[in-house]
């Protein structure tokens, strides 16, 4: 991957953001009647100005980056990259299941899976650590901070 590829990715990201701003101004805000008028009524002027500023700055950044004719090569360790993707996948699945299965059924497997992704292989020790971490935090948050953690469809909440 090169620095130019990353610049392009960021440019696409901001292009989408700017497009959303203008799309919303011309649809939702216009329908609500808040896209025109004076400073009191016009709620669209400020986001429009900020979006234009972003667009202008991103164009300048592209010109700078592509005008130099240089490409900085970014070396990513393939194993590290796989671990990062694995972590994000496990975390996304965890967050997706948290509301449905609840904190207690999802957190220990998530911790265990991340330890495996990190390369740890002492399974007994890892399981113990995962249990201590997930139930330890649940105890602190539920007992002392009165946070009700997601119980999931089974309504699993421990009355500490």
């Amino acid at each position: 991957m090169t620095s130019r590829t990353l610049t392009l990715m960021v440019t696409v990201f901001f292009a989408i953001i700017v497009a959303i701003v203008f799309q919303q101004i011309h649809t939702s805000m216009q329908e609500q009647g808040i896209a025109s008028g004076g400073p009191y009524d016009n709620a669209a002027a400020y986001p429009r100005a900020v979006a234009l500023a972003i667009a202008l700055l991103v164009i300048v950044q592209i010109l700078i980056e592509f005008g130099t004719g240089q490409r900085e090569r970014i070396v990513v360790d393939p194993h590290g990259f796989k671990r990062a993707v694995g972590l994000l996948a496990v975390f996304a699945i965890y967050l997706g299941c948290l509301g449905w299965l609840g904190y207690h059924l999802t957190t220990t497997p998530m911790v265990f899976a991340i330890m495996i992704i990190c390369g740890a292989r002492q399974f007994g020790k890892m399981l113990l650590a995962a249990l201590i971490m997930s139930f330890g935090f649940a105890f602190i948050f539920e007992k002392f901070l009165n946070v009700v953690l997601p119980g999931g469809v089974l309504s699993l909440n421990i009355p500490w």
Binding site: Y94, L95, G99, Y103, M110, C118, M133, V147, V148, P150
Partner: peptide, 22 residues
């Protein structure tokens, strides 16, 4: 490898605790 999951749990519980919102 112990610290990363600890911080991820903290992030999740902490953010959930704000408004009990997934």
């Amino acid at each position: 490898f112990y610290l990363i999951p600890i911080i991820l749990i903290l992030c999740s519980i902490g953010t959930f605790a704000l408004q009990a919102s997934v």
